[in-house]
Simulated scan of single mutants.
Amino acid sequence: MAPHRLRSMDVLINVFVGLHIIGIASLLGGFLTQMKSMGAGTARFTPAMLHGALIMLITGVALVGIHQAEGHTVNNLKIGIKLAILVVILGLVYVKRDEERVEKSLFGSVGALTTANIFIAVLWT
């Protein structure tokens, strides 16, 4: 039996998955570090949150494209829901990125939507 050889496409997929996780960490980390500020009404969307969401979008689209190019089936409903949630997150963060304070409900919505997107990715198989 020949040893398992890592294909270059597998390496590319793993790189994109790693970058996707970094994007999630940046977006969710930006939210979590401001939980106390959110309670005080002084939370704001940081550049790291915007960049994290953009990284998630770019790497997510790349991963779907690579999987489809390799002939794998993709759950279009799941990907569509995740994309819709991410577009809402990106819209909120982009529009409010320069404001010194973001409403608690708006800031909390971004955290809740980010968390929902993570659970959809992990639990929906």
Rank of each mutant, 00 (worst) to 15 (best):
109 S>D: 06
105 S>H: 10
79 I>P: 04
109 S>A: 15
76 N>P: 06
62 A>Y: 04
69 A>H: 08
93 V>I: 10
107 F>A: 00
72 H>A: 07
103 E>D: 15
87 V>E: 12
98 D>S: 15
57 L>F: 12
85 I>F: 03
91 G>F: 13
85 I>Y: 01
60 G>D: 02
99 E>L: 12
71 G>C: 05
62 A>Q: 04
110 V>G: 01
65 G>T: 07
91 G>N: 13
78 K>D: 01
78 K>N: 01
70 E>R: 12
60 G>C: 04
73 T>P: 07
78 K>M: 01
65 G>Y: 07
66 I>Q: 02
90 L>P: 01
90 L>V: 07
89 I>H: 00
75 N>Y: 03
79 I>F: 07
74 V>E: 06
81 I>Y: 10
57 L>N: 06
57 L>I: 13
76 N>V: 10
100 E>N: 13
95 V>K: 15
85 I>T: 00
110 V>P: 02
80 G>V: 01
110 V>C: 04
89 I>P: 02
67 H>W: 09
59 T>A: 05
112 A>M: 14
54 L>F: 14
57 L>E: 12
65 G>S: 10
55 I>H: 08
61 V>P: 00
82 K>H: 03
92 L>T: 06
94 Y>I: 14
109 S>R: 09
73 T>Q: 11
64 V>C: 02
87 V>M: 15
106 L>S: 12
87 V>G: 09
75 N>K: 06
104 K>V: 12
90 L>N: 03
93 V>R: 03
85 I>G: 02
82 K>M: 07
103 E>C: 10
58 I>E: 10
85 I>S: 02
53 A>Q: 08
68 Q>L: 14
59 T>N: 01
63 L>P: 00
65 G>A: 12
108 G>E: 00
104 K>D: 07
99 E>Y: 06
63 L>S: 04
102 V>R: 09
95 V>Y: 14
54 L>M: 14
58 I>R: 09
99 E>A: 09
57 L>A: 11
77 L>M: 11
70 E>A: 13
72 H>N: 09
62 A>K: 06
60 G>Y: 05
84 A>F: 09
109 S>I: 10
104 K>I: 08
84 A>L: 12
112 A>Q: 08
80 G>Y: 00
68 Q>T: 09
101 R>E: 09
93 V>C: 07
55 I>C: 12
53 A>Y: 04
91 G>M: 11
112 A>I: 14
109 S>Y: 05
78 K>I: 00
100 E>K: 14
108 G>W: 01
109 S>F: 06
66 I>G: 00
97 R>G: 10
63 L>V: 01
93 V>D: 05
58 I>S: 11
74 V>Y: 06
55 I>P: 08
87 V>N: 11
111 G>N: 05
